[in-house]
């Protein structure tokens, strides 16, 4: 891997203007995702997921606001992780007037493929503050090991 300084501190760099323009465009276009649109078949119908690989485990995180533990089902078959569940709809009252509806209720399912080097036996899942975190250990041989090199 090449080592290139990320941010050169050149005063009054002409390219700064382009950097500003680019980041401004990223902000504008990235912003379209929020607030999330609604609908069963929309993006929010399957939860947004992050997958991070560290040296000894795979961490999967999903945003599941309003989903209760008892309504959530996790399944790991081989390297396929399925997150399935439902979000309950609040009870309706005759006199209730709805002004805005952006939050979503209903069932969802999402399957993702994890790297092949995972250990299916060692899985730990936690649902906290509307975020599901699943930790799956890597197989021993797949873990990166620091090798000390003796210099003579």
């Amino acid at each position: 891997m090449e080592l290139v300084p990320w941010n050169r501190n050149v005063p009054h760099d002409l390219w700064d203007a382009f950097d500003d323009l680019r980041s401004e465009m990223e902000r504008s276009f990235g912003g379209f995702r929020f607030p999330d649109a609604t609908g069963l078949l929309d993006r929010t119908g399957s939860p947004a997921i992050d997958v991070v690989e560290t040296h000894d485990e795979i961490l999967v995180m999903a945003d599941l606001p309003g989903v209760r533990k008892e309504d959530l089902e996790l399944n790991l078959a081989g390297t396929l992780l399925t997150i399935k569940g439902s979000k309950r709809n609040e009870q309706n009252s005759e006199k209730r007037r709805i002004f805005r509806k952006e939050t979503w209720a209903g069932s969802f399912a999402r399957t993702i493929e994890l790297p092949a080097n995972i250990n299916n036996e060692s899985v730990d899942a936690e649902l906290k503050d509307g975020v599901l975190s699943v930790r799956i250990s890597k197989r021993e041989e797949a873990k990166t090991k620091a090798i000390s090199v003796r210099v003579e």
């Binding site: 929020f34 607030p35 929010t44 606001p65 609040e90 007037r97 002004f99 939050t103 503050d129």
Partner: peptide
């Protein structure tokens, strides 16, 4: 402006039921 922190707008539902206005916001991770 480019250095300002980017804020997300949470999805929000608003309803009124007999004298009470309820706001529901999705704020996972908070």
């Amino acid at each position: 402006i480019a250095n300002a922190e980017r804020m997300l707008i949470p999805a929000c539902s608003i309803d009124e039921d007999v004298g009470v206005v309820t706001l529901k916001l999705e704020t996972p991770g908070v």
